[in-house]
Amino acid sequence: MKRIRWQEFLMILFGSFVLAAAFYHIHVQNNLAEGGFIGIALLVQALFHISPSITTLLLDIPLILLGSKILGRQLAFKTIIGATSFSVFYSLMERYSPFQINLSQHLFFAALLGGVLVGFGLGLILRYGGATGGDDILSILISKVSRLSVGKVYFIFDVLVLILSLVYLSWDQVAYTGFSVTVCAYITDWVMTYHRRKKTESAYI
């Protein structure tokens, strides 16, 4: 049991690293937005020049604390790991990363690559029992008090954030971001269910 807990911890950290790397090197460097709290953080950065590593934590912490009372301490603890490690990794890359991935003339490819990498990182975090931040908990809480599924809440929240992103991005950039979010959702589901499918397939061999 102890080994499994360490595995969960390490995989959540790895997922957060992939997530931070994809957002900074693909989305931010190529002027793509994002849904959820990270999308809000990118909007705040564009308007007020505050690093997303700070904004995401300020948005996440109150909802994580609220979620711990309603959804359980274990989910809250793993969410804190995911949110804090994402913030740390993003801050380090923002300050020290020498890599520049300029795909501004190929936004379709940037959106596709960003969606795949972000979906992979998110999928790992969710697959090992964590969450990416307070927006995940907010979606779960809204779903519990409404007739909407968690997926529908995610979608509505993302659409609202993307509309707000028009303040600093063009329609084309927001449209490509929408494509990236769609790819991300597919890859996230694939990563989360891959292990389950492999176990089912092995049972028939």
Rank of each mutant, 00 (worst) to 15 (best):
R196C: 03
I163F: 15
L57N: 03
S149T: 15
G129I: 09
H106I: 11
T200K: 15
G151A: 13
V88H: 00
F37M: 12
I156L: 15
E201M: 13
R127G: 05
I50K: 06
Y128Q: 09
L59N: 08
I80G: 13
D172V: 02
L117I: 00
E201C: 04
T188N: 03
T79R: 09
T132I: 09
L117M: 12
I137Y: 00
I205T: 09
Q105F: 05
I81R: 04
K69I: 05
N30F: 01
L126Y: 15
L141Y: 06
Y96V: 06
Y168A: 14
M11H: 01
Q7W: 04
S149M: 07
V150L: 10
A110Y: 06
T132S: 08
I4R: 14
L117R: 01
G130R: 07
L126V: 10
F23V: 10
R95F: 03
V153R: 05
L71V: 05
L75G: 07
F9L: 12
R73D: 08
D135K: 03
L63S: 06
S104W: 01
I163A: 15
A203R: 11
G82N: 03
W171K: 03
V88G: 00
F9K: 03
Y204P: 00
T79Y: 04
L113M: 14
E201I: 14
T177W: 13
T182A: 12
L113Q: 04
D60I: 14
V161A: 07
G121A: 04
R196F: 09
V161T: 12
I38F: 11
L59S: 06
L13T: 02
F48S: 08
L10F: 13
E94C: 02
R95K: 13
L166E: 12
F86K: 02
G121H: 02
V153N: 03
P52Y: 07
I187Y: 04
V161N: 06
I12W: 05
G178I: 07
S180A: 15
L138E: 00
M1I: 03
Y204N: 08
L10T: 03
L117W: 00
R95D: 11
L47W: 04
N31Y: 07
G121W: 01
H195G: 08
G72S: 13
F89K: 02
I40C: 10
Q29K: 13
S51D: 15
V159F: 14
F17Y: 11
L75Q: 10
L19W: 08
S143L: 04
S170W: 02
S139R: 07
A175I: 11
L75V: 11
L75Y: 11
I137A: 01
A131Y: 00
L148W: 13
F179Y: 14
S165T: 07
V18A: 07
F23H: 14
E94Q: 09
L103I: 07
V118R: 00
L160V: 15
F14Q: 02
M1L: 06
V153A: 05
Q74K: 15
F108S: 05
H106K: 12
L162S: 08
K69R: 15
G130Q: 07
G134F: 02
L47A: 08
N30E: 06
R197I: 02
L42V: 10
Y176L: 09
T55V: 15
V150Y: 13
R196Y: 10
